[in-house]
Design a protein around this nucleic acid. Structure first.
Lengths: 195, 195
DNA sequence: GTTTTAAACGAACGAACGTTCAGATATTCT
DNA sequence: AGAATATCTGAACGTTCGTTCGTTTAAAAC
């Protein structure tokens, strides 16, 4: 046997990425074998190499795309010139974006150490770019007198850690909707950086 | 050859745990082989089984001990009856404790999915116990009128995520001492839960 | 000084790993 | 219809995995 009915690159390719995403998130990159991914796709292990040069590229591709999408989502927010409004938009965007992609977020945070040195640097640069955007908002707010943060860099890390933490406990269908959670966190963020 | 000079259970046992801790933290549980651990200890792979029934127990032991120590450190804080004072003590303890054990903390957060179901439940129970202690402080502060948090459970998760996040960026010898960081975070935590 | 025991070696087990590749077949192109 | 191409199979490569175990030796007990 060989090529089966209805097999296409356009179909199998995305399925490989989806399967890898799910399995990496659930068991971890190192614990997942190419044969497991292949089984989930419904294909033999060798066929995966039509879609990725190797396992490492599969991981890097997922992380790279995730970071690109994150920066794109951030770029879509239009700056108002008012630091408070911008921070609120950033806060709600961050929560919504991360909540919509729990598996990507998990991988992006947990599998950094399984990247090669070059791939690691590439992802870290993107992450740093994102953090810098929040830091810029905080600095603008300090300059305008809206915020009172002694150390904008630390406040940036604190806010991001706080917001990303939502993913560890939020479950769809719980006692709070995502919008309610967004409101609660915005209240906390505002107080954290406020005067 | 067999037993080498000066070899003792009291020496090798801790060294096995230390090596596993370091390697698990650096590369991840699944990516570390028993032979790697043995090499770091200076022993053959088979000898490890004098100190652990299997690889899984090695991981669980590290995580269990870490959580036990965390709860012990928390228990050492004497409640003053004043929620603000108690929260400050909790905040500083959390940062200090986590900073002193970056490898244990990393493992405790990253390797949960590599635990068997029973072991996972055991660790989760301990973590939940710790979280409940912070939640109790927040509720007390709300009752006394010192804090204004609409949802103590969420505020608990937010504060813990914020504080644990210190480990992702803090480096000894940087521009801030750990005590300075503790002060900055206490300022932020106070504002986050304040009125 | 002899016996017992604790601790480690080193080889071996079957299974699984990532990756390669010749061959087979469905689809597409001419 | 026939040639070319894209896609997948299935077997195989050498390597490594966690774990077991008979054997060996240093240390402890007597």
């Amino acid at each position: 046997m060989a090529r089966t009915q209805g097999s296409h690159s356009d179909i199998t390719g995305p399925r490989v990425r989806t399967a890898a995403l799910r399995l990496f998130a659930q068991h971890g990159y190192a614990a997942v074998s190419m044969r497991q991914i292949a089984r989930e796709v419904g294909v033999q292990a060798g066929a995966l190499y039509n879609y990725t040069p190797d396992k490492q590229s599969l991981l890097f591709g997922l992380m790279k795309q995730h970071m690109d999408e994150l920066l794109a989502a951030r770029a879509e927010l239009s700056a108002t010139g008012d630091a408070v409004t911008d921070l609120e938009a950033f806060t709600r965007m961050h929560i919504r974006f991360h909540r919509a992609r729990p598996e990507e977020v998990f991988i992006a945070y947990m599998e950094l150490r399984n990247l090669t040195a070059e791939n690691f640097d590439a992802i870290e640069t993107l992450r740093r770019t994102y953090e810098d955007q929040l830091e810029a908002i905080l600095r603008a707010g300090v300059a305008s007198g809206d915020f009172a943060v002694g150390d904008p860099k630390i406040a940036t890390m604190a806010v991001i850690a706080m917001l990303t933490g939502v993913n560890t406990w939020f479950r769809e269908g719980g006692r709070l909707s995502l919008d309610e959670v967004g409101q609660i966190y915005w209240d906390m963020v505002r107080k954290t950086v406020g005067r």
